[in-house]
């Protein structure tokens, strides 16, 4: 799961895809995940970090993670 290289992310939760011209907004967790992906952290590392800091159980995070990744893919933000 890798973010496309040229995707611009901001800490306030904006994403801009220069190759398609689309803009996106993210909630806090979404923005955190994307920033860490941009730093090339692995899925496992990011998930572990969220489990440590947020009140969420593993199975719910796993489910949301898959949903989020499929959304990123649908919006053409991931490398294949």
């Amino acid at each position: 799961m890798k973010l496309k290289k040229n995707i611009a992310t901001s800490e306030s939760g904006f994403v801009f895809n220069p190759s398609s011209g689309d803009s996106f907004s993210l909630n806090t967790i979404g923005a955190e995940i994307l920033l860490q992906m941009k730093e090339s952290k692995s899925s496992e590392e990011i998930k572990k970090d969220i489990l440590n800091r947020y009140d969420v159980d593993k199975s719910l995070l796993e489910k949301d993670w898959d949903d989020f990744m499929s959304q990123l893919r649908d919006n053409n933000l991931l490398e294949f």
Partner: peptide
């Protein structure tokens, strides 16, 4: 683009 993002979000 920043202007558009700001008003949108």
């Amino acid at each position: 683009i920043e202007e558009f993002q700001k008003i949108s979000a």
